[in-house]
Simulated assay, not measured.
Amino acid sequence: MQWWCAAQGIPWSWSWRPYPGVWLFIALLLIAYRRFTRGAAPSRPELARFAGGALALWIALDWPVGALGSGYLASVHMVQFLLIALVAPPLLISGLPAGALERAAGRPAARFAAPLARPLIALLLFHTIVIATHWPSVVDGLMGSQAGSLLLDMAWLVGGLAFWWPVVSPVPERPRFPLGVRICYLIASTVLMTLPYIFLTFAELPFYATYELAPPVGALSAGEDQRLAGLIMRIGGGAILWTAAGFLFWLWYRSDAEAAR
């Protein structure tokens, strides 16, 4: 029994497999949330958002998505990336009460992590992680072990939290990062994600030995699976970022309308 999803090189089976490391991670995340919000009770919408973020992580990491993405299909691996780095982080952050964030702002860990959440640094950090974790030698070197697969998943999560923090979190307040600039920040990110999309979608040969040599699942060839992964990154990632930008535009328009009244 594996404790974390990783490439195994055995024929795929739809028989359920337990991954207790994933369950432990989700349980610790929920326990940490309960401790963090003690004394600053979250509202029902905040609870729902945090639960949604935890659910997105659970789906991405556990069977069958986690197992398929770790050692069988690059396209499912890309779905994991979207869930871990682009879907779960904004939900987790927006589920934290402002009172708990303000109380934690002065702690040493918060002061140490604060520079990573500055918009420019967060943007560069996130896209450096995106390119590095989709580099063939990195993927093939990490996905074969449980520790390596865990490292890759956590890199996506940390990068996603840093990327979304200046967009979503109310603490610390950023007067120089208004809604209009946040929209540009998200749009710039869609442009920066073009590079990995191009090399995945238009490559003549498969990049990843992990997925090229994996036991087949379905009718897709390794090249078709890789091209599908690139399209999922482009279309799925773009849809998430443009939806977030559209929501911010609506907030911007509403705030201007209220100010005018």
Rank of each mutant, 00 (worst) to 15 (best):
D140W: 05
M193A: 12
S15Q: 15
E212W: 02
G21V: 12
A117H: 05
L231V: 11
A98G: 01
Y197M: 13
W4K: 03
A209R: 14
P89Q: 07
L123M: 07
F199I: 04
G52F: 05
Q226E: 10
A257S: 04
A67G: 04
I59D: 08
V76P: 00
I84Q: 01
R176N: 12
C184V: 15
Y72E: 00
L231A: 13
D225V: 01
I232D: 00
E212P: 02
L150D: 02
P206R: 07
R35M: 15
F126C: 00
A27C: 07
V168Y: 03
A48F: 08
G223M: 02
M143V: 06
L213I: 00
A109N: 02
P216N: 05
P178Q: 04
P166W: 13
A122N: 08
H127M: 01
T190V: 14
A88E: 03
L96Y: 03
A219T: 13
A162G: 01
A147T: 14
P115L: 08
W23T: 15
Q8W: 03
G9V: 09
P64G: 05
G99S: 14
R49N: 04
I31T: 09
P178T: 08
R111A: 04
F199Q: 01
G71T: 07
A51C: 10
A88M: 09
A257T: 09
I232E: 00
P90F: 04
Q146A: 15
F207I: 00
Y253K: 12
R38N: 13
L142V: 04
V181D: 05
A229T: 03
A113S: 08
L231R: 11
Y211I: 05
S15R: 13
S75E: 02
A259S: 12
W165G: 08
E224D: 14
P175E: 06
S145H: 12
R254K: 14
M233P: 00
Q146T: 12
A51W: 06
L28T: 13
V138G: 00
P206L: 08
S189T: 14
R227I: 00
A259Q: 12
P64V: 11
T201D: 00
A100Y: 07
R35A: 14
I26V: 15
D256K: 09
W3M: 13
P64Y: 05
L123F: 15
G99R: 14
A109T: 10
I187T: 10
Q8A: 08
G95C: 05
L96W: 09
T243Q: 05
L228V: 09
I10Y: 11
V217P: 01
I26F: 10
A209F: 01
A105N: 01
T128S: 14
Y33Q: 13
L220T: 04
F163H: 07
L213R: 10
W242V: 14
A257M: 07
A209Q: 13
L161W: 02
Y72Q: 01
R17A: 06
